[in-house]
Computed example of a mutant assay.
Amino acid sequence: MNAGRSASPVVGIVGLHGAYGRWLRRFFEERMGLRVVGHDPAGDDTLPPHELVRRADVLIFSAPIRRTPELIREYVALADGAEDGRLWMDVTSTKHAPVAELLRSRAEVVGLHPMTAPPKTPTLKGRVMAVCPARVEAWREWLDGFLSMTEAECVTVEPSEHDRAMALVQGLVHAAHMAQADVIRDFAPALGGLERLRPLRTVGYELDLTVTERILSGNPAIYEDIQFENPHVLPALDRFAEAIDFLRTRVRQADDDARREMRSRLLDANAAFFGAPALADGSHGFERLGYLLADLESPDYLSVFLPEDHPGSLRALLAVFEHRGINLASIHSSRTPDGELHFRIGLDRAQVRAMPAEEIAALIAAIQAEGIGRVLSGRGLQRT
């Protein structure tokens, strides 16, 4: 069997030390047990590109969007046919240009877009992966196995269709939130800043602000490239600007005709397009997120990490509360900023407020002393 088509190919990563390069390395080494080699265009000379091309059975380009097509061209010229029979892939947020460059090679070609920042989890479970299998034959079985192990929701799509969709899914959404941030930056200081707006928040404002802050806390180059490197974004932005201008003009006009025109175009026509079933599902989803946010804002909770994740672990943890007659208001599983899975257990506020401080301390000690879990935090429970 050709070594490159075996179950254990050598994986090469161009951009090994970038955010996704590091995540991919861990995935291939720890999840799939594969050997990973690589090179980083940002100054890493440990493995020269010509050696990477020679050694890698699977070569993945994980570089900034603006640089990826150029890098692929360089590697195609460098390989000069030696890539025949191997698999080359990329993991950028645009697909048409990278895949077109990959197809200039003699390798089998797949374009990938994990539609999430590199997660803190070992897989992409619960996330979407766009897959553009442009030229895949001998590597099909291995590719299917790899995608299955990512646990992502894989969506097969043509590169051009992907980029048109991303103009709406990413480009338009990011643009709206960046513009909102710009407006908030101008107007919020006169109201006392973000901290004075927060007490008056709605669920919609809180969700929007969460997305905005996520964007602003990320790598600016990624959001810049999503706007500038996808040619389908500009028409979407033009149309977005026109819709905002339409609304602004009607609000400035401020008469009954303006109100009717605004409602007809921006509410009634769009509601008809989305359709009643989608609107009902969206409204229900919004309410669920509102309940979740309310739970997460509750000041009385314990955040507990369960080191031994096996059947019965959660039951043992809950038994500690049961034995002490403590009611639970909510329970949610999530991850800490370091990626550690934990349970956020909301407690009945009235009951907790009536508990002596020593009982709360005993509860925390019991959880930790019995080896059930480690209490990470407990806002509102520590009282003097």
Results as ranks from 00 to 15, higher is better:
Met1Val: 13
Asn2Arg: 13
Val10His: 06
Gly15Tyr: 05
Gly15Asp: 02
Leu16Thr: 03
His17Met: 08
Gly18Lys: 01
Ala19Tyr: 08
Tyr20Glu: 01
Gly21Ile: 03
Phe27Tyr: 05
Met32Thr: 10
Met32Cys: 15
Gly33Gln: 09
Val37Gln: 02
Asp45Thr: 12
Pro48Lys: 06
His50Cys: 01
Val53Leu: 02
Leu59Tyr: 00
Ile60Lys: 02
Phe61Glu: 01
Ile65Ala: 00
Arg66Glu: 02
Glu70Thr: 13
Leu78Asn: 05
Gly81Ile: 07
Asp90Met: 03
Lys95Arg: 11
Arg104Lys: 15
Arg104Ile: 09
Ser105Cys: 11
Ala107Asp: 03
Lys120Pro: 03
Thr123Asp: 12
Gly126Pro: 05
Gly126His: 06
Cys132Leu: 10
Ala134Cys: 10
Glu137Cys: 10
Glu151Pro: 09
Ser160Glu: 15
His162Met: 10
Arg164Gly: 07
Ala165Asn: 08
His177Pro: 04
Gln180Pro: 02
Ala181Cys: 14
Asp186Trp: 12
Ala188Thr: 04
Leu191Asn: 04
Gly193Phe: 10
Arg198Cys: 04
Thr202Ile: 10
Val203Cys: 08
Tyr205Gly: 10
Ile215Asn: 09
Ile215Thr: 03
Asn219Lys: 06
Ile222Thr: 05
Tyr223Lys: 03
Asp225His: 10
Ile226Lys: 00
Asn230Trp: 13
His232Thr: 02
Val233Gln: 09
Val233Ile: 12
Ala236Cys: 13
Arg239Met: 10
Phe240Glu: 04
Phe246Cys: 05
Arg248Pro: 00
Arg248Cys: 06
Thr249Trp: 11
Arg250Leu: 09
Gln253Met: 07
Asp257Met: 01
Arg260Pro: 00
Ala272Thr: 13
Ala278Pro: 07
Ala280Glu: 15
Phe286Leu: 15
Tyr291Asn: 08
Tyr291Asp: 11
Leu292Lys: 10
Leu293Gly: 07
Tyr301Arg: 14
Ser303Gly: 08
Ser303Thr: 05
Asp309Ala: 14
Ser313Gln: 11
Ala316Glu: 15
Val320Glu: 11
Ile326Gly: 08
Ile326Glu: 05
Ser333Thr: 12
Arg335Leu: 15
Arg335Glu: 04
Asp338Glu: 14
Phe343Glu: 00
Leu347Trp: 05
Leu347Asn: 01
Asp348Val: 12
Val352Glu: 01
Pro356Cys: 12
Glu359Ser: 12
Glu359Asn: 12
Ile364Val: 08
Ala366Asp: 14
Ile367Trp: 00
Gln368His: 02
Leu376Glu: 04
Ser377Lys: 11
Gly380Trp: 05
Leu381Asp: 08
